[in-house]
Computed example of a mutant assay.
Amino acid sequence: MKAPIILETKKGTIIIQATDLLYITVDTTKDHSLCFVTKNEKYYCTGDLNNYEDAYQNWLFRCHRSFIVNLLTIREINKYERRVYFLDDSFNNNCPFSRRKYAPLKQSLKDILLTEQEA
């Protein structure tokens, strides 16, 4: 079981389960603000992507300088569009990945899937 992410937002404390989170991105409209995109909602809080990348490195992957994806919810990595698509996503969210992150992203996804299969 992966540890949930606990966010402090303006509304209060939010707990996001590992299986619900799709990705985390920088909110460009506000300084030092992050957007946590889940299957059903978006949550905003202040912070830095590096904090989440370091704390949850076993199931989150920094695929772009402004995006961290949840390896547990990836459905497809499209090499030609350079986009990541997600499972059970009714809003058809996707996010970009940088060219040099394609091979490490693919390897991290394989590693996490093998780890989850063994558990």
Rank of each mutant, 00 (worst) to 15 (best):
Y23H: 10
T38W: 09
I14D: 04
I24Y: 07
I24L: 14
L22I: 07
N40P: 05
L60F: 04
T46M: 12
E41L: 04
Y43Q: 11
Y43T: 10
D48W: 08
G47P: 06
N51C: 12
L34P: 01
T38Y: 10
K39D: 08
D20R: 10
I24M: 06
E41F: 07
T19H: 06
Y23V: 01
I14Q: 06
N58F: 04
D48K: 12
C45G: 07
D54N: 15
L22A: 06
Q57N: 13
T28Q: 09
L49H: 05
N40T: 15
I24K: 02
T25R: 14
D20V: 08
Q57G: 06
D54P: 02
Y43F: 15
D48G: 04
D20W: 01
A18H: 09
N58G: 01
L60Q: 04
N58H: 08
C45D: 05
L49G: 08
I16F: 10
D31A: 15
T29Q: 04
N51H: 13
L22M: 10
Y52K: 00
K11P: 07
G47I: 05
E41Q: 06
L34Y: 10
I24T: 07
T46F: 14
N58M: 03
Y44S: 06
A55R: 09
K39I: 08
W59S: 00
V26C: 03
Q17K: 13
T28E: 02
Y56H: 04
G12H: 08
G47L: 11
D20Y: 01
Y52M: 02
H32I: 07
T19L: 03
A55L: 09
Q17P: 07
I16A: 04
N40H: 11
C35Q: 13
Y44W: 09
F36A: 00
Y43N: 11
I14Y: 05
C35P: 09
I16H: 10
Y52L: 01
Y56V: 03
T13W: 09
T13F: 00
D54Q: 14
T13N: 03
W59T: 12
V26Y: 11
D31C: 12
K30D: 14
Y43K: 01
K11E: 11
